[in-house]
Every structure is written in structure tokens, then in C-alpha cells.
Write a protein that binds this DNA or RNA. Sequence first.
DNA 1: ATGCAGGCGCGCA
DNA 2: TGCGCGCCTGCA
Length: 284
Amino acid sequence: MEQKYVLENPNSFNSIHIFECGQCFRWNKEEDNTYTGIFKNNVINVKEEKNKIIFSGVCENDIKNECIRYFDLNQDYEDIKDKLSKIDKYLANSIKYGEGIRILHQELWETLISFIISANNNIPRIKTIIERICKQYGKEIDFRNKKYYTFPTPEELSKASVEDFRKLGLGFRDVRVYETVQRTLNKEIDLEKLKNEKNVDILKEELLKVPGVGPKVADCIMLFSLKKYQVFPVDVWVRRVISELYFENEEQKPKTIQEFAKKQYGELAGLAQQYLFYWRRDLV
DNA sequence: ATGCAGGCGCGCA
DNA sequence: TGCGCGCCTGCA
């Protein structure tokens, strides 16, 4: 049965900015320019109308609570943008460009596997691979005469062999994902412990032990799932944009970029990263 | 066709 | 500790 939640007078909410800024892989644009996506066991359609956002879909629990958490609706993005815009004109400019960005609160397990798959990969292919995994191992949910598939739990994914992953197109990431599933099942990787770890340095150290998780992937997981707004993932685009804007286009090392970001943007560096990334990647 | 895409893991100094 | 290199795959 379909549920509905209407957010009145939203601020800082733009579907394109949110779903196309590179943080998520399972939201797709519909013919009518709304977006439909799936998180946990929820299939949600997001529709923007004048002065309101309409969330509708099939939800295990209360759709309002699910959306408030997932879309970070209790966070004051106007305040965040004000603070960041004062830092420098480049950031202010990119914030104007991606004013409706929000950092989604995505499930740790899905984020972990998705970003292991993202390594040395491109977004269309990442999305295709994830859809294949979900269709093969997730649970089916019907919504408006279409079938959607949940992201498989560790138990569900444990049915896949390395060869199965290879057939789904993971390439050399097959062993990494397989190993991660196994280690999660035997509790060598403890998802709950990771969720509860407050210290970002310890958290990163733990994430780096996971096969297929290097510095960049670990940062993405911390920002996109564990709400660590201070971490600043450095991918090729961020490296490019920071080098161009602040280092006279001289390509800097990731380490230099991170040190710079911490100094320049402080505790909200991760948010700054999203605005800069979205702005720069959209230029091409 | 060859290079490249939101890196990682390995081997070597 | 820090570097260089190879890697599945699909697409331009």
C-alpha cells in the first residue's frame, strides 16, 4: 500500500542536485522528471511541486520518518551554506550552482559494497552492476506496476560465488566483494561497531582493513553513510577542481589536497566537496 | 582503436 | 612510508 509525505516550504532541496551529485547509484529519473529510487525496503518517488516536495511510495515503516532520516531533513542546509559561502568566492559560487544538494543518509552495507565496486569504474557501469546484483540477490518490491529490488543483505549476497560476481560484471572487484561478504558474515567486519565509532581516525583505520576499501572509498563511506561531514574524499574530479582553483592548475597530490581542504573548509569539508564536485563535473 | 572511468593492492626501494 | 604499475569491463 502506498504512503505519502508532503514536505511544505522546503529549502535546499533539488532532486537533480541530490541524485546527480555522485553520492548514490539507485535513483533514476522518470518521464515526468520525478525521481524514483530504493533504499532499505522502501521504494520512493520524489516529486517537486511549487513550495513542496511530495514523497510517495511503498514503505515498511512510516514514510515521513524514513524520508526525514534518509534525506537529512532535520539538517539546516541554509545555515551550512551560509557558513561555507563565507569561506571563499569559489566555494560560494559552487554552492550557488548546487544549492539543493543534500547528503543522503545511506545504509552502511549498501554504501560499502557500492563504493568497493566504484573503484576505477564509471558511474553508468557502477549503476548497471549494482542493479544486476540487486535483481539477482535482493527482494522484489512492486511499485506502480514496476518491479524494484532491494539491496541484498550480507546473508543474501553470500549465495554468490566469486565466479557469480564476475559474471555480473564486477571484473577484478569480484574477490574484494566476495571477501567482504564473507568477513561480514563471520563478524570480522562488524557493521554495527563501525556505525557506532565516533572517532573518525579509528573509523577510517577500520574501514581500510576491508578488502577493496582504500582511502578514497573509505572517505566516501564515512561521508555518505556515516555522516562524517568533515571528511573530504579526493577523486580525480576533486583533485582537478582544487588544483585548478587554488594551485594555479598545478596537479596536487591527494594528501596535499586533503590537508588544504581541512585548513580551508574545516568541519564541513565534506559538504564543500560535494558542491565543488557537482559544479566541476557538470562543466564538462 | 587505445585510453579512460569517482582506486586498490601489490611489489619494490 | 612512498612510489609505480597492472587490472575487469564497456564506452567513445
